[in-house]
Amino acid sequence: MKAYPYRRLAGPVSLRVTAVELKVPGESREPLDTKAFSVVEQVVALGGTGFDDWESARLKLSATIPSKATAPDSGWSDVSVVAVLTEKATNARTVVPLESTTESGREWTGFLDVWRADHRDRASLSVHVVARADGVPGRVIATAQNEWIVDLSAEAPRRQRELDVVIAGFREGPQWRRPFREVPWIVDTSGDVAAVHVNTDFEGLTDLLSGSGSGVEGLVRDLLLAQMCTDVWTAVFHAAVGDLEVEEDGTPLFPHDWRGEVLREMLPDVMPGRPLEEALGEVHRRRTEAAGWIDLQPRIHFAATRRAEMPKALSTTIRGLDRLQQRADA
């Protein structure tokens, strides 16, 4: 828990994107449909706009803050509200002030330009209330509970993202994959997004995966999918803990990308009952100090199995086979 040496503003601070316009060089701004962003997911998706050569996107913003902030007896003065767009991968930080639009001081609006060349993948958009507190100017007295995501490449405004699936024959294609031509699938965790490569040279595999058959075929397919997912989650977890940035004092940092998400989702099962940061530190310690890393493997396996919903798939399969058996007997 945190404490501050000055009074903070209690109550909800919320941010909303109300419109998005794209700027293509030499042309006037083109408003996008509101479908390009989701106030439910709090995501702006700039990948499916149909404009390839856009240069910047103007986000119209609206923030709501508790009216206490600007009450005469609040103890704060020079209250301002700023929107901040950041992306760790590009060290980008854009700050714009919003303007109060209602007398109550609750609604603040403004706009922020997202320069495409300043961002790579996903930028975070947050809003802060800043004021002079106890004579000190520029104190952050409140921050929005939720951040928006500005996704440069997604077509759908969703927070969740999917790992990639590549369907290809392993005999061909990239060098590194060729030695694996005998296996049905392999997980590549090196790219911007982890990818499962499914080997079409493994006969019948893709038919089984994409088939619509029910009965035994359907049961086997669901079990196979669960097995593949178990493999994937195990691999991505190892990839994520194996490539942590470490602070000077040895504290491992959560990665910014999908690796961070994977760790956040799986660590509670790997190190139950621990705060995330502590769990990450412990896993990192065990991996690097060569003690306890082996002991951790069953827990990683457990977390991956759970994440892949393997127990559910397996019991469904077993029950399904029983039923088929009974039908055959009858």
């Binding site: 999918l225 593949m228 994937v232």
Partner: peptide
Amino acid sequence: VAVPQEKRRAGTERLRKRLAVGGR
């Protein structure tokens, strides 16, 4: 109003659906 959905290549749909991270 319907937001666009991520296009999935046929055949990968089942697997990709299960390989979602974040958003929770």
